[in-house]
Amino acid sequence: MKRTEKKRKDIIDAAIDEFREQGFLGATTTSIAKKANVSSRTLYNHFESKDALFEAISEIMIERNSSMEPVPYDPDRDFVEQLKDALWRYVEVITEKTAIGLNRMVMSELIRDLDRSRQFFNESETHDYPIKRLISEAMDAGELRKADPDFATNQLLVLVKGFFFWPEFFLGENATSKDVLNDCVAMFMAHYKRGK
């Protein structure tokens, strides 16, 4: 890693800590620079403002949540098993400790600032969920009835996140039985299985 890249990463890491501890309004670029062991001038060479830093962190969060590769449909495997495997990988990505920390930090600011929230969700809508490809290709193959794959994917992931992401996000723990994922998939299949 080049020295300038390391400084940029140090600034982002320090900003994440500062935003988490002080909130966006209470955080200062002076404190962020001090935590990153850089001068304020160096910080401003990388990020023109506290807002620019927050936007960079939000983008990192979106990218981390989208870090799982799109999942292709395999006609030689049972679709339900493919879907469960893909969902477990997705749950692992979104509940990883760093991802949860980033989500908490960003979401607290989005709740406070409606304009920033709109901007964030507009940006996140440009990123496809990795499960969408699997669902879309299964629809094309006739495994699932034809529908809007974006809408269908979102329906399924809202169910899954409700049981596996939000308890981790709010409580720092998740006592949800793994069998619940099977129920989420069963509900999805009851609605989208071909022949409905």
Rank of each mutant, 00 (worst) to 15 (best):
E81V: 13
N122C: 02
V106K: 03
Y44F: 14
F47W: 03
Q82M: 07
E96W: 02
M105S: 05
R116P: 03
F54E: 10
I16R: 13
Y73E: 04
A186E: 13
V106M: 06
A147S: 13
M1H: 05
S31Q: 13
F19N: 07
K34M: 08
Q155H: 11
I57N: 10
E48V: 12
A86F: 00
G101Q: 14
R133S: 06
F24E: 04
G172Q: 11
Y129D: 05
S49D: 07
D51T: 13
A36S: 02
E143S: 08
A138D: 04
N45Q: 14
L25S: 08
S31T: 15
R64H: 10
F165K: 09
R89S: 13
A175P: 07
L157M: 07
T29P: 03
S66H: 09
E48K: 13
R20H: 14
E55W: 07
Q82Y: 08
D10Q: 11
M187N: 13
I57C: 03
T4A: 08
L181F: 00
S108V: 00
S67G: 15
Y192C: 04
W166I: 04
E21C: 05
I57Q: 07
S117D: 05
L87S: 13
A190N: 14
D113G: 01
D74H: 10
L156P: 04
S58K: 13
R145K: 15
D85N: 05
K97N: 09
M1P: 12
S136C: 04
E81G: 03
D51R: 15
M105D: 06
Y192F: 15
Y129S: 14
D76M: 01
L102D: 13
F188Q: 07
G26H: 09
K196E: 15
N182I: 11
A15I: 02
V158N: 12
M107D: 10
Y90D: 07
A99D: 09
K196Y: 04
M107W: 02
K161V: 02
S31R: 14
N103W: 06
L53E: 03
M187I: 07
L43F: 12
E96A: 15
D148E: 12
L134V: 03
V80F: 00
V180E: 00
I60N: 10
K161W: 05
F54C: 09
E69P: 01
E143H: 08
N65V: 12
F47C: 12
G142R: 05
A190G: 13
D113C: 01
S40L: 11
I62G: 04
Y73F: 15
S40H: 05
K50N: 11
I111T: 01
L144I: 08
T4G: 01
D179P: 01
D10I: 08
R116W: 01
L114H: 09
E125V: 08
L181C: 07
N182A: 15
F47L: 06
K7P: 01
N182M: 08
N103K: 15
V180M: 09
M139T: 08
V80K: 09
A99V: 11
T126N: 03
F169Q: 01
L181N: 00
E63H: 00
K35D: 00
R116E: 02
F54M: 15
I62H: 01
F54V: 04
G162M: 03
R145F: 12
S124R: 15
R20G: 14
E59P: 04
N65A: 11
W88G: 12
S136Y: 09
D128P: 03
L181I: 08
L83E: 09
E81P: 05
R77Q: 06
P72A: 05
D140W: 02
K193D: 11
F121P: 14
A186Q: 11
